[in-house]
């Protein structure tokens, strides 16, 4: 009796709710923190990025038009699905980052808690960012928040799960859709996360995940006229500069990379949500 062959997982991209291989047919080797072979991951091309933007744009009307309550429920559902896969994610984090199992479990728990925290914000962000404005006339003057649109995200290289969740959740909770370039060094948890997203009632295209080189893909997204905002959290200073210049053409909102390392376990605050919000103000005459 021969020894059983292990079944290796193919790590693909996540675009429009489906798991395609890269259009380019390329892949790259992902290693553990000790340098051992882990898997081959797809190496996305600019055309995969283009397809992802089309998918994100297509999903935008439905997702931004859903009620805040509904979006909150869906994000809570992502937390539930992630919770049921704790052990798998912990094992992947141990392999990718070389952390202890205890630490990895803590990070997964923090990621689940982060999702629950953001899920709660879906119907509250309007209350803190919107307002009823006093004006010099018989009008109701109401400012309310609206999502910016399609957001391209360069995920942080460190924190392959918690960091990733911490950049995706605040963008989608307010109704944006996104194209995420996962950590080049540790992309595997991002693809496992997309399996979670695909089974969480999240409409296809709301989150699209590309693995590969941010230096290659991000400039195409930064220059794309149908992308409305950029989150450069994981970009190197040189890449961030290039992207910000390209983003000027259609006045994208840009979240610059942090100057020092982020502690993903700390309280995230609301800045990541409010950066990708627009304000609409309506004047309405006061009746009798």
């Amino acid at each position: 009796m021969s020894e059983r062959l292990s079944v290796r997982k193919t790590y693909k991209l996540f675009i429009g709710g489906a798991f395609p291989r890269s259009e380019s047919g390329r892949s790259y080797v992902v290693t553990s923190s000790k340098g051992d072979f882990l898997a081959n991951a797809s190496k996305a091309s600019r055309k995969d990025a283009r397809d992802a933007v089309v998918a994100a744009r297509k999903a935008f009307a439905g997702w931004s038009g859903a009620t805040a309550y509904n979006r909150g429920q869906v994000i809570y559902r992502i937390a539930e699905m992630l919770e049921s896969r704790r052990a798998q994610f912990a094992a992947e984090l141990v392999a990718a980052d070389g952390v202890s199992t205890k630490k990895a479990t803590e990070l997964v728990d923090a990621a689940v808690d982060r999702l629950v925290w953001y899920a709660g914000w879906s119907d509250k962000i309007g209350a803190i960012r919107g307002s009823a404005n006093p004006v010099a006339g018989p009008y109701f003057n109401l400012s309310s928040t609206e999502p910016t649109g399609v957001v391209a995200i360069v995920a942080p290289p460190m924190g392959p799960l918690l960091g990733l969740i911490s950049v995706i959740a605040p963008v989608i909770v307010t109704g944006n859709t996104c194209v995420v370039i996962a950590s080049e060094r540790a992309p595997l948890p991002s693809i496992t996360l997309s399996e979670v997203l695909a089974t969480s009632d999240l409409p296809g295209g709301v989150v699209n995940i590309l693995t590969g080189k941010p230096d290659e893909i991000a400039p195409w997204l930064a220059g794309h006229m149908d992308v409305n905002a950029l989150d450069l959290t994981g970009a190197s200073p040189e890449l961030a500069l290039t992207c910000e210049e390209l983003a000027a053409e259609n006045l994208k909102r840009v979240l610059r990379p942090p100057t020092d390392t982020i502690d993903w376990l700390a309280d995230p605050g609301t800045a990541r949500m409010t950066t990708f919000l627009e304000t609409k103000t309506v004047w309405h005459p006061i009746g009798v």
């Binding site: 283009r50 933007v53 744009r57 195409w220 220059g223 794309h224 006229m225 149908d226 992308v227 053409e249």
Partner: peptide
């Protein structure tokens, strides 16, 4: 232009 365009335009 060398950049992807969008239906907004």
């Amino acid at each position: 232009t060398g950049r992807y365009s969008g239906p907004d335009y």
